[in-house]
Design a protein around this nucleic acid. Structure first.
Lengths: 172, 172
DNA sequence: TAGAATGTTTAGTAAATACTGAACTCAGCA
DNA sequence: TGCTGAGTTCAGTATTTACTAAACATTCTA
């Protein structure tokens, strides 16, 4: 190996390390963001790596190695992420191992998921109004507000998702 | 007290107890729902009681008594709820004590709050795309999807809140 | 200015949760 | 039929979080 090649190799190494550093940073940030929305940090790390990995599908073993986590943790987190619709399990033809990858419609899935919570809030407001059924209107207002706002979202959010999916189809 | 009055009083007592039972049930349900969206259960209890209490404003002491919680816990939870915009502190004229009550626009506040998270997700997607800047398009697609969906929500949600507030003004 | 009543801060505890590591299961192969 | 290699389940640990209780601060009253 001549000097020029050595330098090139050394540069390549620096770039490689720099790249890995940035990847790890990215993964940690996704982890923190997931924690912010009430999901386990490790689920965020798995998701984060699947967002930037090459190839875009990864086996549980690869995930455990890259994220330096136990196989058990990976198993739990992939199950969770599949359950909430953010990733999916795929089996490539001619290979016995299973892989995981980001679901392309992950985000509209997530919004649909949130609809259940909104419905729960609307129902709770209605139960509260039953409790106050013989009270004066201004005591009932706060609960009516809560009910109406959530009913509004229950109507509007599906329309919004529809508009999004329409727009996506168009641009492709 | 004659027999008829005794019976009436007894009935009233039963109703009173029934009512309190239903109130406590309601409070607990709000607590559980709050836990579901990643907030402390006690914050949900405070919010739940403020939804059905009469009068609609309550002092920290009253909250502690009704919810059978420590003053410290109430203090922390009211601070949290004020911070995320679900309740507000009011001081009635001629009274030194402060009270808390549900903010009437609590729900649009909450949606605005979520905008920050959506922006964070969009920014993260953009950072990811920088990491993959020289990769092939199909590797970049998952991140573009994430970026575009969140950018879409950043545009649409404020419009939705606006429509809601418009509609609310109309119906009042 | 002392005293009482109310609310906040903080140190400590109890409970929930995330994560690990080992045992177990299952599929392919010698 | 054992053996290897990958993945899941589960029991245990360690960390975080929610909550309490007591000390402290503040403001009105005597």
């Amino acid at each position: 190996m001549d000097v020029a090649n050595q330098i090139n190799a050394s540069h390549a190494n620096v770039n490689q390390e720099q790249r890995q550093f940035e990847q790890k940073h990215f993964i940690e940030e996704v982890g923190l963001l997931f924690e912010m929305v009430g999901l386990p940090r490790m689920a965020g790390r798995v998701f984060g790596w699947l967002l930037i990995s090459n190839p875009p599908y990864q086996s549980p073993g690869e995930l455990a190695a890259v994220l330096q986590a136990s196989k058990g943790s990976i198993s739990t987190m992939t199950r969770l992420l599949v359950q909430i619709g953010l990733i999916e399990r795929i089996s490539l033809p001619g290979q016995r191992r299973d892989y995981f990858r980001i679901k392309l419609d992950a985000w509209s899935e997530l919004t649909k998921q949130r609809m259940a919570q909104i419905t729960a809030f609307r129902r709770l407001a209605e139960r509260g109004l039953e409790l106050l059924h013989d009270e004066e209107p201004n005591l009932r207002r706060r609960l009516e507000e809560m009910r109406d706002m959530h009913a509004f979202c229950e109507r509007e959010l599906p329309l919004m998702i529809e508009r999004w999916e329409q727009q996506r189809l168009h641009s492709q």
